Every structure is written in C-alpha cells, then in structure tokens.
Simulated scan of single mutants.
Amino acid sequence: MACSVATHNTKSNPPVTTTGSDSDSGINGNTNNTNRLNELKFDVFESITNFAGNFDLDPDQNFYKNCTNLSNYFLCDQFACKFKTVDTQKSFSSIHFNARSLVKNLDAIMEFIETLHFQFDIIGISETWCNENSPPLNIPNYTLLSKNRNGRVGGGVALYVSNLRSYTQRNDISLTNISCDSIFIEINQNHGKNIIVGVAYKPPDVNSNHFVDDFDKILTTIDKENKLNYIMGDFNLDLLRYTSINSTQDFLNILYSNFYLPLINRPTRITSNTATLIDNIITNSHDLPVTSGILYCDISDHLPIFQITSFINDSFQNDVPIQSYRLINPLNIENFKQDLATNGWDDAQMS
C-alpha cells in the first residue's frame, strides 16, 4: 500500500485562530481539521525576505538555496511507511514531546514511539514536571539525562540518548534564566562533525526579550565550535504571529543572524479554538537532506515533532566548507544602483 502524507490544499479561510484561551485538544487527524491546519503555515523564506529587505540582493537567498521548509502532519502508520527504509547508520534523528508530566505520560510516550517502528537517536522531553522524588523513568535501550526545575513546580527537560550513540554531556551550555530549563549534549561522530543537541523550555510567563537575549548567547557560543547543532523544545513564541509580536521577530532575527532555521512551520499546539506554532527544532544544518514533521498524538495538548537528517552528502563526510554566492544579473545590478541612489550618504561623508 502506498504511503500518504496528511496534506490537503484548500482556498477557504480556516476557522481556527491563533489566539485564545487554553482548552482540550481539537485535533484528531480527520480531513476537515487537516485542511484547516494546512492553511496555517509559517514561511521561513518570506520572513527572511522581510528581515533582509531586498531578497534579490541578499546572500541569504543563496545560502539557504538547498533548504526546504515544509513540515507535514503524519499519522503513525504514515510515518512508519514513509521512513521504514531509512538507514539509521547514515542519519541522525530526534523527536520532541511536551510531556506535561513524564511520570504520568511516559508509558503512553513509549507505546506511541513503538507504533512508529523507528529508533530515534534522541528523544527530547520538555515539561517533565519531575523532581528529586520522581520514580525511575527509563526507556529501554536509551540513557536518560534530565534537569529538573528547582524551587518551582512544573517545567523540567530531559534527553533520552540511544545506547548506540557515544556522547558527552555539555554542562557548559545552558540558559542562564533560572525560570527556563535546558540541557545539552555533544554526540561524538567517527566521521564528520560532532553534533550538539539540546532541549529547551521557556514558560509562557517568562519575559520573552530576556529569553531571546539568553538564547542568542547560546547560539553564539556553540557556533564557534563549527559543529552541527540541533535545539528542540517548547519556546512559547508563536512563529505564525512573527509579523505582529516584536519578541517573536527578535527570536527569528537571532536565528537568521546566526544562520539557523526552524524546521517546523505548521501549528504544533492545537485546541478547539486555537492553533499556535510554539514547538520547534532549530538547526544550523543547511547542506544535508532533512525531513521534518509533526505527528498526530493526543498524549498532551502539544503534538510531537521530529527531524531526520541524512548523512549521504559528501561535503559532510569530508568537511568541505559551504560556498555561498550572490546572484548577479542586470536586474539585481539595477536594483543595487537604485538602493545606492536612494540611501542618505550625508553621515558617511561627514565621517
């Protein structure tokens, strides 16, 4: 039986809004809900255009030329069918759950992953709600690393690392805001670059501007190491509303300025009245084939998200540097001349 992905194209305006109060999940994978959800999409390249100004002249267009920005919704059997032939020895994969109590939902998470028939390298968890009195929360064939929230209820993050992967915990990388949670590791690769993986959680009541500044420092720090980086989590910054919320614009701005892209571009938290894109996987991997998506699941009011990166690209194995270029043609030259003519140069001449 052929595999199908839950995508539909419609012209009608979706009745789902992107604001409103929390309520029970309104998604069950039926056609009507899927039609509505696919109308709500964040276009990373449109947002880059808005930030960069003249897209024709900006090198970002060429730097990201090999990237795709389409994350589909999958039912479990659709996922299992589509990815059953993936060579896990030549790929890197991760999945993220907002658990809203790992003690309560671990069994459901394990059962859900089992239906996918896929061994992820990393399972990331946000909102573990764990503390020092929590029972053992192990998953067979994985090693658990966790960071609980101290002094407050809720929050907490965890990483389950496949026993097939060699790793080092990176305690030197962390969000400094005590109200936010994060944990990072570095996966050791026999060939090619090592991989830094993290999971982060920002509560809704934390100042978004402070979080963005903190996150920017993390990106700046790990960028110096010239490694592949993946940061997943619940950031509580709705990318669907980046044009109207300054803190979300600032978040995207620091991602783009550090050459990172969000891999998820459709709503991840869905209720009967709302649909928001607040869970994501951020990466600086642009020259490798990456497939990302969202899974239908009712474990919590957030849908699981995943990415699978294939290491079949020779430039990764041989560490060949990425080459970017500017698109030069008569139209772009003329646009450049017009930009020069319309800019004010008085301050430059005075200096």
Rank of each mutant, 00 (worst) to 15 (best):
V44R: 13
D181S: 14
P135I: 14
D56M: 06
F92A: 00
N207W: 00
D60W: 06
H96S: 08
V197K: 06
N105D: 12
F55Q: 13
N253K: 15
L116H: 08
L331A: 10
D43H: 11
A200N: 08
T271F: 11
F45W: 10
N318L: 15
A80L: 07
R241W: 07
A200S: 00
F83N: 12
R266A: 08
A52N: 04
N246I: 07
K104H: 09
E111L: 01
T168F: 08
I125G: 05
R152Y: 07
K193W: 05
S91D: 04
V320P: 05
M232D: 10
S101R: 05
K337Y: 02
H8S: 14
G156V: 04
S324F: 06
N141W: 07
N131D: 15
Y296E: 15
I196R: 09
F79I: 09
N150W: 14
K224P: 07
Y64N: 13
K227W: 09
P136Q: 02
T17I: 02
T17S: 06
L263G: 13
N32M: 04
P15Y: 00
A200T: 14
F79E: 10
D58A: 06
A6Y: 04
S93Q: 11
L164N: 03
L277F: 03
S292V: 01
F79N: 12
E39R: 15
R152D: 07
D107W: 00
K65Q: 05
N332G: 09
Y242W: 14
Y64G: 10
A275C: 03
A341C: 05
G344N: 15
S94Y: 03
F42V: 06
H96P: 09
Q119C: 12
V103R: 10
D301Y: 01
L106D: 04
S71G: 13
